[in-house]
């Protein structure tokens, strides 16, 4: 996030440059201390939060997530998790904007059912349209459908975020070819959001040309979340560099790495 020195290969979202291409959620951790240590280890600059009722009259001294992750240090990305219709998603974004003093970057997700947590695309499109019109910078969770991704981009979403697999499943990228098509079509950043389970999945997303990966459970549900956060950071970096480097062509048969010429025994 630091703008003081030039960032090589920055991630550009809604006019702002980021050094890290790993975005992390802040849910499911054991406590605030583990949350902050894992997020520190991940190197993430953009962190998601949810919007929920304040616990009234209970333990007013209890630390809030924004005390642990101060908005002057992290870009806070409020989500609409738990919303199953466009109306509540829009309400949630408006509350988040007020909560964060006019901050317009939001992660829109409108869910279709509890078993799959797949997005309700009709409702997502409706909410996205309304939010864009209202001046929000919308990063949108969607399925791995290139046609829907294209539509969300043309509506003015600032990033399109197809799932790799169901939220919290850790299954990895189920449909890499669709993710590739989405990446190839898009002019806005494409981030894989949801379904990543381990560092190789994150690397794979980046090798496909994704601009970043957003994850939560893969880190929070690891036996050692802080170590996994570090692994994810490296997976993202490795995958990005491999993508930029341009991988070799895969071949069916062998190709010796040492020269044939100059063999002294034949």
């Amino acid at each position: 996030m630091s703008q003081d020195n030039q960032i090589t290969d920055p991630l550009l979202i809604a006019g702002r440059e980021y050094r890290s291409r790993l975005l992390v959620g802040t849910g499911k951790y054991k406590d605030m201390d583990e949350t902050s240590r894992a997020i520190e280890a991940s190197g993430a600059e953009i962190v998601t939060v949810a919007v929920r009722r304040t616990n009234l009259g209970q333990n007013p001294g209890e630390p809030n997530i924004l005390d642990v992750l101060p908005p002057d240090r992290y870009t806070i990305l409020p989500n609409t998790a738990g919303c199953y219709d466009a109306e509540t998603a829009v309400r949630t974004c408006k509350l988040a904007r007020e909560l964060l003093d006019g901050h317009t970057l939001v992660k829109l997700e409108v869910l279709g059912d509890e078993k799959t947590l797949f997005p309700d695309i009709m409702a997502t499109l409706k909410a996205a349209e309304e939010l864009v019109k209202d001046g929000f910078d919308v990063m949108v969770y969607t399925n791995d459908d290139p046609i829907v991704a294209r539509e969300l981009e043309s509506m003015g979403c600032v990033a399109v975020m197809p799932l790799a697999a169901p939220i919290g499943s850790g299954l990895g990228i189920r449909n890499p070819l669709n993710i590739l098509t989405i990446v190839e079509n898009a002019k806005v950043p494409v981030l894989v959001d949801a379904g990543v389970g381990t560092a190789s999945h994150a690397a794979e997303a980046m090798e496909l040309g994704c601009d970043g990966v957003l994850m939560n459970t893969a880190i929070a549900a690891a036996r050692n979340p802080v170590l996994m956060a570090s692994a994810m950071r490296k997976g993202i970096e490795a995958g990005r560099e491999a993508f930029l480097a341009g991988r070799m062509q895969a071949k069916r048969f062998a190709s010796a790495s040492s020269p044939i010429e100059g063999l002294f025994f034949r």
Binding site: T26, G27, V49, V51, R52, T54, N79, L95, L99, N216
Partner: peptide
């Protein structure tokens, strides 16, 4: 009346 805050979430 709803009073809301930010909490950990993904």
């Amino acid at each position: 009346v709803e009073i809301i805050q930010a909490v950990g979430g993904g």
